[in-house]
Design a protein around this nucleic acid. Structure first.
Length: 441
RNA sequence: GGAGGAGUGUGCCGAAUGGUAAGGCACCGCUCUCGAAAAGCGGCGGGCGCAAGCCCUUGCAGGUUCGAUUCCUGUCUCCUCCGCCA
């Protein structure tokens, strides 16, 4: 959520953000005008309401000592007036609150303006895609031949996009999670296992709602509306709300959280995409980092670099080639100020971007995403801190993927496959797995 | 699921039984000091307003009243006990 004062002062910047982020027609620039209009109405009504309240307080004060029938009837009139104005004020405020949630965060000045993935800017590339002197297998062939993945029974049990990890495949996923957790703990992060069946408010806080409702699973129990929970698609959701409605102390910042959780995604908008294998699935495991720090743009920028560096560090340790993309405005989420995605090389990944008669084999696939939100989320979640100068400010928030599996398994399996059909385990992972290779049993 | 108790401003404590949220601790600034402590003064929720200032804020939502922390209804959370389950 933006500061209403910012919208009053810079309506054009907000409108530009709506356009640049490719939000129309879901969100149109007219919401800005509508907000300014409601804001004006709201302030008029507040003035009226407060004038009456003031009269009421003065009257009540004088009625403390003596009271006449006449004064009491004046009081009744005031009460009547309030009963007309306040519901109207409340109605306006509710509309304003609702529409304020539709307004996106304004991107940084140096974010490339663009409409899709072609407009992202490659910030840097690390490693070289491996060359294979034997017939390449994709992750499904590898997984099935080594009995570490079962997609057919996965879809039997869980439907489309279902999968089983088996044997060393299952051990590998847990090992990766522990590897990621340990690394972050060593860097001073607080390891967390958060609830992922969360209240709607949490999804509003992160900015997943109101825009992304259809992507999130909804659950009911047999009682009332207030018992609705949603399954979080990332531990960012519960972690970002951990300090909801709290006032922290500047000396407590930064807060660095590492959340391990299962993640659930409906993938409603991507029925035809990535239908093969375990690239795009409805449930997976992930360690997500969430940072809360002081209200300082430069510090947020630095955090975004630092968080991205952590992801790069693990990809390097895992021996996986990758590239870092500075995301363009059209590829950013509504809350974001600045965002890097990391794409990891997947040797057997097929993309639609190749020529029709010459399908391209091997592609970078998104495995990590780091975002700076400034105070967009903290305004929604109402997370503030008391600064050293005594003032109360909203924290800045960021998040980043540490490691997400099974998608990362695609890169690990395909990049590290060997001529004999086995898969080599990167050195960094061996202590967490207890084996150095996955081979046919 | 049943019974009882509790929830007060920004972190902590806490007063006010129908007259409009006292006070203390913590924190920040200033004075004093070589410095610190102590002491004193001011600040330390949200909103409207150029400002003076005003309005709101006792878990939440309603109701009664000229006036509600206080009375009534609903509801959430926590605690204790019972039941059920792991």
């Amino acid at each position: 959520m933006l500061d209403i004062q910012f919208i009053r002062d810079h309506p054009e910047k907000v409108k530009k953000a709506i356009i640049d982020k490719q939000l129309p027609p879901r969100v149109n620039v007219e919401v800005v005008d509508r907000i300014l209009e409601l804001d004006k109405k709201r302030r008029d009504l507040i003035l009226q309401s407060e004038t009456i309240r003031r009269e009421r307080n003065e009257l009540a004060e004088s009625l403390k000592t003596s009271r006449t029938e006449n004064e009491i009837s004046v009081g009744r009139t005031l009460k009547q007036k309030l009963a007309e104005i306040d519901p109207e004020l409340k109605r306006i405020e509710n509309s304003l609150d609702e529409i304020m949630l539709m307004v996106p965060g304004v991107p940084a000045d140096d974010v490339p303006i663009g409409k899709d993935e072609n407009d992202n800017v490659v910030a840097r590339t690390w490693g070289k895609p491996p060359k294979f002197n034997f017939k390449l297998k994709d992750h499904i062939e590898l997984g099935e031949s080594l009995d570490i993945l079962d997609v057919n029974r996965g879809t039997k049990v869980a439907g489309f996009r279902g999968y089983f990890l088996k044997n060393k495949g299952a051990l590998m996923q847990l090992g990766l999670m522990r590897y990621g957790f340990d690394k972050l703990v060593a860097k001073g992060f607080t390891p967390m296992i958060p609830p992922v069946l969360d209240l709607p408010r949490c999804f509003i806080n992160t900015g997943h709602f109101p825009w992304g409702q259809v992507d999130v699973y909804k659950t009911f129990d047999d009682r009332e509306e207030q018992n609705i929970r949603h399954l979080a698609g990332t531990a960012e959701v519960p972690l970002a709300s951990y300090h909801q409605d709290e006032v922290l102390s500047e000396s407590d910042l930064p807060k660095k959280y590492a959340g391990f959780s299962s993640c659930f995604r409906r993938e409603i908008g991507s029925y035809g995409k990535d239908t093969r294998g375990i690239y795009r699935v409805h449930e997976f495991m992930k360690i997500e980092q969430v940072i809360l720090d002081v209200n300082d743009v430069n510090k947020s920028r630095q955090w975004l670099e630092d968080l991205t560096a952590i992801s790069e560090e693990i990809l390097q340790e895992l021996g996986l080639p990758y590239r870092v993309l500075l995301m363009c405005t059209g590829e950013m989420g509504e809350p974001q100020f600045r965002k890097y995605d990391i794409e990891t090389w997947m040797p057997a990944r097929q993309t639609s971007s190749g020529e029709a008669d010459k399908p391209s084999i091997g592609a970078y696939g998104e495995t990590h995403s780091a975002s700076a939100m400034l105070d967009f989320q903290s305004r929604r979640a109402n997370i503030r801190y008391k600064a050293k100068d005594g003032s109360t400010k909203f924290v800045h928030m960021l998040n980043n993927t540490m490691i997400a599996s099974p998608r990362i398994l695609i890169a690990l399996w395909e990049n590290h496959q060997q001529k004999d059909g086995s898969i080599a385990i990167p050195k960094a992972l061996v202590p967490y797995l207890g084996f150095e290779v996955i081979e046919k049993s």
